[in-house]
Design a protein around this nucleic acid. Structure first.
Lengths: 107, 107
DNA sequence: TTGACAAATCAATTTTGATTGATATGTTGC
DNA sequence: GCAACATATCAATCAAAATTGATTTGTCAA
C-alpha cells in the first residue's frame, strides 16, 4: 500500500471505466446464463452452445465481452477452448457496490 | 422461508431479469457518477446537475434507469425531489456475484 | 496432406440505449 | 389566479451493442 494511503486518506474510487465494463458484461441475460453454466467449473464453447441452444458465433461474441471485462478466462486444450469464471471482474464490482452501500462504514 | 428450502434444496438462482437490469444501470459512467454523488447522502436533482454539469433532462433519464433497477429511491419534499441510494438493487447484484464466485462455498 | 471439427472473426442488419431541446406537470409564494 | 421554479416526459436524432450467416483460423487424426 502506498504511503499516502497508510491510515490517512480515504479509499480512492475504483476506475469507473472498469466498473462500467464489468457491469455492462453482466447486463445481458445470455451472458448471465453463460456464467450460471460455468458455476460448476470450466466448459468448452461446444458444451455451452448445447446447453444454451445458441449459435456458436453468438456465444463467441458474448464470451469475448465477458473475457474483456475480466469475468471469464479461457484455456486452450487441443481443439477445445475451456472457459471458466475469473474472479477479478467479480471483485471489481463487489468493491464498487460495497463502496456506495450506505450500510457499510465509510473509512 | 418456504418449507421447500428449509435445509434441503439449493438456493434458487436469483431472477436473471432483475440482475440484468441492475447491472445495466451500473454500466454507464454517468450513472456511476450519480451514485458516487449520493454516497454522502440524499441529493436533489438540481444539486446533481450542478455537480455533474449535465442537462436536467439527461440526469432525469439516468435517475429513472437507476430507480427502475432498484438502485435509488426518491422522496418528494415540496418542489424538490431528493434521491438516495436504495440497497435493494445492491443486494440483487451482490447475491448474484456471490453465487457465481468459485471462492465461495456452494450449498 | 486432407477432411473434419472447434472456435474466432467479419460484414450486414436490427435492436437497444443515450442525448438533445422542447414541452408538460406539479409546487410554492405572491 | 399567476409567475417562477424543480422535475419529468416526449419526439427526434445519434451511437452503441446484439444477431445472423458466411468465412477464416487452428488443431487433430487418418
Amino acid at each position: 500500500m502506498p504511503e499516502s494511503r497508510r491510515a490517512r486518506s480515504p479509499k480512492p474510487a475504483p476506475d469507473a471505466g472498469a466498473v462500467a465494463r464489468c457491469c455492462h458484461a453482466l447486463s445481458d441475460e445470455t451472458r448471465l446464463a453463460i456464467l450460471e453454466c460455468l458455476r460448476g467449473g470450466e466448459e468448452c464453447v461446444c458444451n455451452l452452445t448445447g446447453a444454451l441452444e445458441s449459435a456458436q458465433s453468438r456465444l463467441s461474441f458474448h464470451l469475448k465481452v465477458l473475457k474483456d471485462a475480466g469475468l471469464v478466462r479461457d484455456r486452450r486444450d487441443g481443439r477445445w477452448i475451456h472457459y471458466s469464471i475469473d474472479t477479478e471482474g467479480l471483485d471489481t464490482i463487489r468493491e464498487f457496490i460495497d463502496r456506495i452501500d450506505p450500510r457499510r462504514r465509510k473509512p
